[in-house]
Design a protein around this nucleic acid. Structure first.
Lengths: 252, 252
DNA sequence: AGTGTTTATCGTCAGGCAGACGACTATGAT
DNA sequence: ATCATAGTCGTCTGCCTGACGATAAACACT
């Protein structure tokens, strides 16, 4: 059977980003305000079309840089620089997910340390970090008394999937360090786990666990008191990516 | 900015399937022989174009049924009928992955019990179950002395990712039962783990573990001697999908 | 200077689970 | 009858975790 270009329907392909960070003890996601129909004025996940000569991961990295200024890690290289972790999440292709046309969106998950205010084309009003609970709740009112309209398109589902991926992945990998600055303390890392999982962890058992896992943390020699209290040792992320045995998420 | 249909490049979107099963103590994948260029005559993963009115999971289920006759489970329903497990794996969109045009492929992973010979349009010579090692090795010769040419396109990468997903997922979920018929013995389930992981497991510890995990296995009351030796109890898959604590894959 | 507060860090102890492995049971094959 | 094969039940030991006590080192008060 010869190749027939009319044998398949054309699609638009986009990348959407779930960019997560931890701010003020809460798991937050980057949201942008839509300036055009459909869903004009509603919050959405950042994203855009994949270009003709671009790989999917390249498109995701480009969108991430445009929205946050972050460079993405190559997932295969050691996590040494200050870039964000970026990985493919899932692909969403319901025929009705975009009322204009057939769009397949390849969602990606990015984890970033706490950043300064987002810059979206210089318009501070069109992008923000919002707690994921606020973005995912149906109805109700957000922190500023603003009506919490649901996210545009199927972005609530995408965000929910991304959060669940992050929650499970910090169990068995060292990914939680992607939420931390280059140097961090055990307590700061513990507060990441507490924010992402929404639970309280025992500081003593947590300290024993993370410092006892080979390759997870590397002491830098320095200390800090930026959290108050007794000075804490500073660490960098070690080379290990898989934690064995994993961190255990407390029961419900 | 108004909606501009020329603002994005058109893509073809396909689904490719990694269909795994366990045959003769080996993890096998379904491969089809390509009848047309490019890669004519080479083995490839089954797959096809997503239709204009179809969701991605629908397209994957349709392709699975066309290739194997299996109906796919709804991933949210209990695994009671004899359908196969089907889940989205990852999406591959390198601009050069198909020399003809820009194709984005949404790969799916299917796990099936041992099946009769595959039927691909009635042509028994164009589809087969092959051990994944054989499909993934570069060069060398397969079981029948046939030159083991690499899989077409980037299908070796897709297959490799699918196998890795299956290997890790049977650790913390009850998915290994998807490789078994409706009723199975503990020994048969253990041989599934051994084939997928490529290791030997202690039959006594394995028996203690799986029968002691609540909701994993439900005894049917029957017994069988189809494996020889002492009659073994028959079980069905229980309702539990997540195993906590997980099965532990032995160290390398 | 002393006291309280906060955070970090070390230790102890009991319970649970996994790996190693012995022992016994119930079939079919020779 | 004996053997080979597979299944099932126990035991023991070591490791890890959760629960918690205790100490250390900073800062903010008074």
């Amino acid at each position: 059977m010869p190749y027939d270009p009319s044998a398949f329907p054309p699609f638009a392909v986009t990348v959407d980003l779930v960019v997560l960070t931890v701010r003020r003890h809460a798991l937050c996601a980057l949201a942008v305000r839509r300036g055009e129909a459909p869903f004009q004025g509603r919050w959405a996940l950042p994203g855009g079309f994949v270009r003709a000569d671009e790989d999917l991961s390249q498109a995701a990295a480009r969108e991430l840089a445009e929205e946050t200024g972050l460079r993405a890690h190559d997932p295969d290289s050691p996590a040494q620089d200050n870039g964000a972790h970026l990985e493919q999440l899932a692909t969403y292709g319901d025929p009705k997910r975009d009322p204009r046309m057939r769009v397949v969106s390849v969602a990606h998950l990015a984890l970033a340390p706490d950043l300064p205010a987002p810059r979206a084309g210089g318009d501070a009003n069109s992008a923000r970090w919002a707690p994921v609970e606020e973005l995912l709740q149906q109805g109700g009112y957000g922190r500023d008394g603003e009506q919490a309209a649901p996210l545009a398109f199927d972005h609530a589902q995408i965000l929910s999937d991304g959060v669940e991926r992050a929650r499970s992945k910090i169990e068995y990998s060292s990914l939680a360090t992607a939420f931390c600055p280059t140097e961090f303390t055990v307590g700061e890392l513990r507060r990441v786990y507490e924010a992402v999982w929404g639970v309280a962890l025992d500081p003593r058992n947590f300290h024993r666990k993370v410092t006892g896992t080979p390759g997870f943390l590397v002491p830098t020699g320095g200390t800090t008191t930026r959290q108050g209290g007794r000075p804490a040792q500073l660490f960098r992320a070690g080379g290990a990516t898989l934690l064995n045995p994993p961190m255990l998420r407390p029961e419900v």
